[in-house]
Nucleic acid binder design. Sequence first.
DNA 1: TTGTAAGCGTTATCAT
DNA 2: ATGATAACGCTTACAA
Lengths: 344, 344
Amino acid sequence: MSQQSAPTRGAATLHDVAREAGVSLATASRVLNGSTRKVAESYRERVEAAAEKLGYTANLSAQATARGTAAIVALLVADIADPYFAQLASGVARGADEAGLVVTIAITERDPQREVRLVRALRGQRPRGLILAASRTEGADAVGLQNELDAFTAMGGRVVMLGPSPADTRSVAIDNRSGAAALGAELGGLGYRDAVVVAASEGIRTSDDRLAGFTEGFTAAGGTVREVRRAGFTRDAGYAAAQDLLAGDLPAGTLIFGISDVVAIGIMSAIRDAGRHVGADVAVAGFDDISTGRDVRPGLTTVRVPLEDLGYRALHAMLEPEWDATQPSLPLEVIVRGSTPPRT
Amino acid sequence: MSQQSAPTRGAATLHDVAREAGVSLATASRVLNGSTRKVAESYRERVEAAAEKLGYTANLSAQATARGTAAIVALLVADIADPYFAQLASGVARGADEAGLVVTIAITERDPQREVRLVRALRGQRPRGLILAASRTEGADAVGLQNELDAFTAMGGRVVMLGPSPADTRSVAIDNRSGAAALGAELGGLGYRDAVVVAASEGIRTSDDRLAGFTEGFTAAGGTVREVRRAGFTRDAGYAAAQDLLAGDLPAGTLIFGISDVVAIGIMSAIRDAGRHVGADVAVAGFDDISTGRDVRPGLTTVRVPLEDLGYRALHAMLEPEWDATQPSLPLEVIVRGSTPPRT
DNA sequence: TTGTAAGCGTTATCAT
DNA sequence: ATGATAACGCTTACAA
């Protein structure tokens, strides 16, 4: 029945239901849409029957206009095809579903300007909250974003950031630094002595923290970070960086730490495409433990971040009436797999 | 600034803008929100200045109530963490962005009943359209869904299905059958003689078509499908099925065709965890060409489906005023990688 | 407990 | 070209 778009109006309205049930609009509203008010059982039944009969669904937009806020949570991610964000989104969606919220998703494409525009546009939905994954929190772009976010909170919206965030912003963070330090220590303990880090550009907190942590842990365990390569957070950036690295002379036994699993997986592919062997020849480690890491061979050594959970918690951080900034960080766990065999 | 929710109404309204600019509500509306009507340059400027000054953003809900339809497209996927759906979603998001639409996403968890509930809930948003990926189109559950969808189209909404769909429904489909046939033929040509297919349950069109096509092509090329294992569309289902298969006696040189790449990747992992070798020992092929397939080793032989593109096209199929059912299928291409080396 | 009616922020019709 | 003003579908004091 995809006939040429009919007069648009077709759905049964609350009005229709009320008439059908022979009650007032108010009564119908009270029984159908969450209200604490009581209504007589007989009426309730009639209204429900009428609603069912007419196939009534509340018009969320109208509800939102009347209430001033919509049962929506908006999620901003860099790239939904990236498993990292996809897993995060999955957790957000689960939490939202439980809370009766609809999830609206927007893709920033890692473009800060675009992100600002998106926030502004999403603000128009009057969502209950905004969840931002991977946003710049420093630098020139950050202030434009912050203005937009302030406008949003000023009108009663809640903002949650995943990862590092300004002091007065709700956030769900992990301790990138100590996680990376633990990874560095572990790898040092395994006998690795030379490492190259493929990181994102300086000024990106997540990257900076992981780099600093790793260096700290690895150095303490007797290793040396020979070089830091600046790439992005994508698989292809990792691939390219590794390709470049391999073109020079990369001593066998070197460890490459990719700032995220996605990057690390790109690195692994580059190594193999260059005819070298991941593990025995060049070791690789990542961070996040995205599910793909289980399926590549050798398995990718990494730091496990409960991504789904993170998304779920972000949603709840948004729901919470009061925000307690002193949230415990989520547990991080080093997972050693075949990509970093013990060096003896 | 997450102080206790301030005066709640905080955002500047069109009314405010109009007053600030000293024009009528109507004029302000005409300037700010797409209207073909003309308004004098001097007014236009004043309104725009006022809007800028006040940080005005149109209230989409109010707009939607007034217009009767929201600038929203709702997307239903089984699981957003699954790369197949994530890539699809990515294309939808891109198209929506270009068209000035917001994407709302809902997760069905492969539960038909849940899907019906979700469609009903989403209907409440009065979205411009609904894009369904991987829905049952037959069986008892399908009728409940169809009712819900009919109600939606009756009120002017558009429905697009990805994959097989009822005759009068807009859809973007690929020719699973011939793609799988081409794959089967190619693999037969490579020298494979015995295959096991890990499919989804019977009655799921996509699975049925791929199975039928593969069997057809493989048989014609001189091979035999020894067995069909029923699993699901997930990585873990593939893993489990393969584990089971390997527990019996699976002759070396057997080819396992996973009904989708996600399944095939699970199969590959199971094979390796069982201490056997993918490729030389047991060959594996999949379908979809999700990006992960590039990063596993050996690379996964598959049929390339332009997923991102598919999502993008679905969005456009929704936008199209008239729907021409005779759309050409998207091109499918067999990609042979290391998981199915030539058998000599 | 139930109903009346005044909003909510926009759009769109109809005069001017 | 501009401006009143009646919808849009729903919520929510305030009455009854």
